[in-house]
């Protein structure tokens, strides 16, 4: 099956536009409800984690920047469901969702936001720099696009060693104008590396809409110049995200070929906590919230008779997040002794 999108399809742009069947058709939604419930649980965990993080931020318990993923959860969760645990992932500074989706504990995540030594990065990284080597979550990065070649490098290493691991790198549509995106894409295609580039197009590069940052509105077109396969779809269901990314992952794993996938999504919060979001209307936001994919899963699972299971999930997740907050509050801060060993491996070079 070819994943190449026709130019006609490329014109189907807005979130709720009627897309040709080959674009909008959701595949394999008939998967087991157990899987759907577990993915719902993960999305809900991320949502509740971030809501509590926002609350703690408002109370000045978390410093610096806090970029929330609320609204985009199905992408990290769907992707993680399609990947193997030994596959490498990397993302931007909007990284809580991917870290939790890959298996980081809410405790390690919340403690990192609180700057505590029990955090995933010992309190040295903060919200923008979650790392979890054990789960091959190789980071949240603060320079837009700068992580894209790094992710390509992990794919290079897999190919060099003859492994069948896949790398997946996430970035926003705001990253596709910067050089590192193009250098990473160009080299991945030239060297046929097993990587999936996932553009989470949430329509706003901070406060600037896509129409004012890109000369084409179809981000997946960027693949053409590199002779790279591409895909493009709206984030409408967590299982659909899993299946569509699964095709690109299979191409990388089986044929060692990269793919650019553009997923249209929407963030319900501002760019960061300090962003009131005045560049979009209240009506637009309310309209988008009605299409919350998390809510869609919940309604669907309720309709299928899983109300009791959902209520159990609610309780478990609430307990988990409350426990994470308590853990973060009670954890010690890192002392100066952590600084030098984390700067150099071995003796400090001064």
């Amino acid at each position: 099956m070819s994943l190449t999108i026709t130019p006609t399809a490329a014109l189907a742009t807005v979130w709720n536009a009627v897309l040709p069947p080959e674009i909008s058709a959701m595949t394999t939604l008939t998967n087991g409800d157990d899987l759907h419930l577990s993915l719902y649980r993960k999305m809900f965990q991320i949502r509740r984690f971030e809501e509590e993080a926002a609350r703690a931020y408002a109370q000045s318990k978390i410093g610096g920047f806090l970029h929330l993923y609320i609204g985009q959860e199905p992408i990290a969760v769907g992707a993680s469901a399609a990947l193997r645990p030994d596959d490498y992932v990397m993302t931007t500074y909007r990284d809580h969702g991917l870290a939790l989706a890959r298996g980081m504990t809410p405790r390690a995540a919340m403690a990192e936001l609180y700057g505590k030594v029990t955090g995933c990065s010992k309190g040295l990284g903060g919200s923008m720099h979650f790392f979890d080597k054990e789960h091959n979550m190789l980071g949240g990065y603060g320079i837009v696009g700068g992580h894209i070649p790094i992710a390509v490098g992990t794919a290079f290493a897999s190919k060099y060693r003859g492994e069948d691991r896949v790398s997946m790198v996430f970035f926003g549509e705001g990253a596709v104008s910067i050089g590192d995106f193009h250098e990473g894409m160009s080299l991945a295609a030239l060297w046929k590396l097993p990587i999936v580039f996932v553009c989470e197009n949430n329509e706003y590069a901070m406060g600037t809409p896509l129409s004012r940052t890109l000369s084409v509105e179809d981000v997946s077109l960027k693949a053409l110049a590199y002779g790279m396969e591409r895909d493009r779809f709206n984030s409408e269901h967590v299982l659909q995200v899993r299946d569509r990314l699964g095709e690109a992952i299979a191409r990388a794993r089986t044929h060692s070929e990269p793919t650019l996938v553009e997923i249209r999504t929407y963030r319900f919060r501002g760019h960061s906590m300090s962003d009131p979001g005045k560049y979009r209307t209240k009506e637009e936001l309310e309209e988008r919230k009605k299409k919350d994919v998390l809510l869609r899963s919940r309604i669907e699972l309720e309709e299928k008779g899983h109300k009791a299971a959902l209520e159990a999930i609610d309780k478990e997740v609430e307990d988990e997040i409350a426990d994470a907050v308590r853990f973060a509050e009670e954890s010690p801060e890192p002392g100066p002794e952590v600084l030098e060993p984390t700067t150099y491996a071995g003796p400090f070079a001064r």
Partner: peptide, 26 residues
Amino acid sequence: SRRVIDAPITESGFTGISIGAAMVGL
């Protein structure tokens, strides 16, 4: 050519790629 690799003129690209490769053990 597996171990002596000609790169196109992409210093940022192949530096980043090398950092990524080093991060996972090369």
